[in-house]
Amino acid sequence: MNGLRAPHLVALVAGLGFLYLPILVLVLYSFNASRLVTVWGGFSLHWYGALLRNAALIDAFWLSLRVAALSASLATLLGTLAAIALVRFGRFTGRGLLSGAVAAPLVMPEVITGLSLLLLFVGAGLERGFWTVTIAHVTLTTCFATIVVQARLVGMDRSLEEAAQDLGAPPWRVFASVTLPLILPGLAAAWLLAFTLSLDDLVIASFTTGPGATTLPMRIYSAIRLGVTPEINAASTILIALVALVLVAASLIAKRNLLPRG
């Protein structure tokens, strides 16, 4: 269309403002010296200091990081395999089952996924904790990883693979030296998405965890339940900054062409 007109600008500002307002409020309040939300007591890093002395919150943060890193890695592996099967294998036995199992967790309410996994773990007699949360998160995030890698594979130029094949490279060699480097940005995006989803999950972790394994969202949730605490504002701001940093780094890497683009 021909340029941006006033009503469009209003829609953009209002819509994006709605999306960013809560984040802005949170960041602002994290620097508020006053414990009261209504009173601006001046700029202060007090709550960040309190946060650093909150051992329970820091333990939960490390636990969540470990769960997220491990589950994202496994989910990316499984998601890549599933995406290759769905995009490249044509018809095969179990295709319907695989595409269904990959799509279903996306629309499944988290309370159901969490409850059913817990009942499985109890039935199998598994001790609940770090590993059960990790397994649950792999299950949830594999689907998202599959979709991201799938999109990359579909948009890929196949002629390079065909050329490698014509030159006599065996299938695994074609995959390792042609396909894999080409879909690497997709794998990175899938890993990042799985990582943030795992880091963010409250419901499924609450169902599948056990004593001694309290994740960060669970700690934040119970703090919110007990009443708004400024420390949570500080923790949230750090998390938001962390995600923003990772995203900026990722886009810079993509821009500088360190990773092949497609």
């Binding site: 499984l78 599933a82 199992a101 996994l117 397994i135």
Partner: peptide, 21 residues
């Protein structure tokens, strides 16, 4: 080897739990 792992994982940790529920 490609289809097996994701299918096994989702079958074990997504489909089976529903039967239990």
């Amino acid at each position: 080897f490609v289809v097996g792992p994701p299918l096994l994982w989702l079958g074990l940790f997504f489909l089976l739990p529903f039967a239990i529920v």
